[in-house]
Design a protein around this nucleic acid. Sequence first.
DNA 1: GGTGAGCATAGGTGCCGTCTATCGCCTTTA
DNA 2: TAAAGGCGATAGACGGCACCTATGCTCACC
Lengths: 301, 301
Amino acid sequence: MNLRDFRYLLAVAEHRNFGRAAEACRISQPTLSVQVRRLEEQLGVALFERTSRTVAPTAACERLIGHVRAAVAEMDAILDIARALRDPLAGRLRLGIVPTLAPYLLPLVFAPLREALPALELEPWEDQTAALLDRLRAHELDAALLATEPDGPDLASRRLFAEPFFAALPPEHPLAGRAVVAEEDLAEDILVLADGHCLRDQALAACGRNGGLGGTLRAASLSTLLNMVAAGYGTTLIPALAAGPAQDAGIVLRPLATRAGRTIRIAWRTHFPRRAAVEAVGEVIATRLRGFAEGAAAGVI
Amino acid sequence: MNLRDFRYLLAVAEHRNFGRAAEACRISQPTLSVQVRRLEEQLGVALFERTSRTVAPTAACERLIGHVRAAVAEMDAILDIARALRDPLAGRLRLGIVPTLAPYLLPLVFAPLREALPALELEPWEDQTAALLDRLRAHELDAALLATEPDGPDLASRRLFAEPFFAALPPEHPLAGRAVVAEEDLAEDILVLADGHCLRDQALAACGRNGGLGGTLRAASLSTLLNMVAAGYGTTLIPALAAGPAQDAGIVLRPLATRAGRTIRIAWRTHFPRRAAVEAVGEVIATRLRGFAEGAAAGVI
DNA sequence: GGTGAGCATAGGTGCCGTCTATCGCCTTTA
DNA sequence: TAAAGGCGATAGACGGCACCTATGCTCACC
């Protein structure tokens, strides 16, 4: 049973004339006659009483026509909504971001994203990598900004930009006098984030250590970590985007000898249908951060 | 765009598995896959995110599914109502009846009609022949009980029963002594109904007169006419079904020499789709009145 | 690395929605 | 009273689509 037939029925009921109704429906009069007849057979009810001169809706037709109108209206609503949903660059996009990136990246890219993708309603969601991947796989996120490359065939990702690490030192720290810091030298009194932060593992790896920090304090956030370094509790590695706040806190930053860093990627489910939106978001971010790694490496004191 | 595809969509959204959804829809899995794909193309929106293992509704699907449910519900309502309307012997039937017949026939046939056609909601409408025919042609009535045969190709009718006329006389009237009355003898002091009543013309015709009654009083109803005869104002012809009330009023009835009478017919629009209901009503009435003419002619005093 | 679950694709078939041409009925008009 | 015209139904042809079975492809699991 086709919605089209309902439109035909409404047209005949309105015009009370098959020829004009057919014209309104942009079909031939015989087609309309046949289709209405078929509909009557399918419903098992005569809808119109025809003579060679007149067409009159039957009582059954009057009884049904309200529901027919409602069904057609729902159909039109569906088509309207679908039309509005058609643009993959419009609508909500739930974007996961790791906590060591979110507070520093979002201020940079929010305005460009709004400008480039005005119809996209970006919903940032801050959480650690593992949680983001879980939510991504559970369809609770549409994409995620990560510092690692997700594995498994169900997820895909695209590199956005490289973010170098800096040695973060209290001003009075012995290493603060050097122009470049060797990662191994930091290892002694390095402070790291709590378990689960990707930056924790990456910082330890850069220093040649694989965990096992004994009683060393683990910060819950990069912001906490910076405050602890500023207070002279130790040293750490911070990603380049956090350089500004770190310096504001009075921390001395020095480039690393190996130019170690992390790569920021945007990840999505392989089969996510609005891949175009993800790509567009990635493109805006990559463009905004183009040349950032080099500039950061060279520009810091 | 087919309602069937919406049912498919709902099935996939419910089962989250094409195979089981196809089973629920009683179609093959490939058919369901193709149809859902087609629907997505028609709407221009991805409805499901598929992997080789999982099926998940997209945000667009969630947005649309309420309206889809509503459309399907309307469709089901239409089918349900149509099913209920399918029986031509059920539902309202507006039946016109001429005033000289209605009060005497209805008490006889109401119970048999109720029993034979319990689902039929008979709506009697009492009016004169011309008005009934107008309303019938205007679709304001579905059928009519008349004492004449309607003409024109747009109306059809069926004979139901013959109703003899009787001479109605005041007890003291000279003709009351005869066993049989010749119509011409009534013509002198005959009382007739007002213009528009078919019985008026038929009574006059039976007496060999074509109207032109001068100042003779014209009654608005048969009941009034009977009271006037009972009061001795004159004579009249009454149809056999009115015999009971006439005798109750103290009127003397005598058969007519020519056995004149009228034929009661049921009429309907030629193209009226519930002809079965009209025929059924006619059949019940004809059955109830079978042999009535002979019985009436013989049974009256 | 084989097996099985599950969605997609391919190819064939019959129905159905559409068209144009024409019929049949009835009303209007010359 | 016959011709013309309006209107719905019917006939026949054709293309598309919904459906089927068979098979391919991907991925998880053992």
